[in-house]
Design a protein around this nucleic acid. Sequence first.
DNA 1: ACGATTTATTAACACTGTTCATTATATTTG
DNA 2: CAAATATAATGAACAGTGTTAATAAATCGT
Lengths: 206, 206
Amino acid sequence: MGILERKEKQREEIRKMILEASMQLFVKEGFENVSIRKIADLVEYSPTTLYIYFKDKNEILFHLCEMGFERMIASNLALVQIENPIDRLYLLGENYINFGLENPEYYDLMFIQNAPMKTIREQNVGHWPNGDIALETLKHIIQECMDKKLIPTGDVATISMAVWAVAHGLVSLAIRQRLERLVEPDKVVQSMHESIRWMINTLKKA
Amino acid sequence: MGILERKEKQREEIRKMILEASMQLFVKEGFENVSIRKIADLVEYSPTTLYIYFKDKNEILFHLCEMGFERMIASNLALVQIENPIDRLYLLGENYINFGLENPEYYDLMFIQNAPMKTIREQNVGHWPNGDIALETLKHIIQECMDKKLIPTGDVATISMAVWAVAHGLVSLAIRQRLERLVEPDKVVQSMHESIRWMINTLKKA
DNA sequence: ACGATTTATTAACACTGTTCATTATATTTG
DNA sequence: CAAATATAATGAACAGTGTTAATAAATCGT
């Protein structure tokens, strides 16, 4: 069975090759300029060959999305060192905003585009590996805040949703140039951080 | 000069025709299926003719976006009857969520897609007629809440931003199927309303 | 070595937004 | 009124997009 194994390995390597080329294109030329043909050019395959390794473009985008989550999760590694869950929540929010502003293309794929969700529904039977990990982090912190009576008790999912909504609302409006209509462009980032801080403070006092 | 006038009028009528056809396509087939060729088919013109009346597709989408805002503004007409600005703010939030969930395609254009913003930057020299009206409504209510000391005083723009962020965060995550990862699908809408209510309540108490 | 299977490619389909050169239609001027 | 001009409309084409069916090349199991 060593042959089948090696074959599977080789197949996986080519998949990785394709994904790395896609990522390279993605970070250099942005989301809109990632096309099957350009990826194929880069890996020196015919465009149709990519369809042997991936079902469609959505599946490739899904994997890029997962890579984005890996980055985000990595940026949250420092969190474990903070013992106070409120402080941890605050840093999580800060990290989230910074990640979004620094990686708008990834953010797009992770939280705005439909493509990755399509793949999840179609084949992964509702499994979103890295995305779910990131959400679990948030829920876990909220739960800990409640356990230690630092915030009012309530439905964890609903409150996590509210917190996530603020952060996502800020980032997505920002990277789509909507916030500039409310605050002068050079004050946008500052106001975003103020909003998050305000949000967590009121949560604390409530 | 009556001739030039009539010409201008006729031109405006054809523009309207094109926009109405676009809207028809838009509400029937959705954002992604609005193409220059399909619009042209519907108005029985050649695709190239549309470029005589509009600079590009973005400009058409921009006008569809403005129509979306007209709908939203219309749904807020009942607000003026409510004297308590906090209650008004609450209804504004409810309306916002309902509008987003009931008109996801319009919402997309108004708050998620880049296209309309591109047109604003390119030609309207930073003017966003209906979008700015909608934002003004929010700021005005927040200001009134502060004036009547119903919420803590602070920078109106920043607090408006936070409130908008919650609402937009909820709607945009919902219509992109992200909230289903946090709450069971059939509880999503309910949780959204709870989040908004919670948000305004904490704002009130803070 | 031969047939079967996997892998890769070519060609094509049905689209997309957009532009250029050309034709048809009005309008204005001589 | 006729000629010249300005406007409006178009057909063909460019350069791309995702995706598929049919075909060729390479690899594998017997």
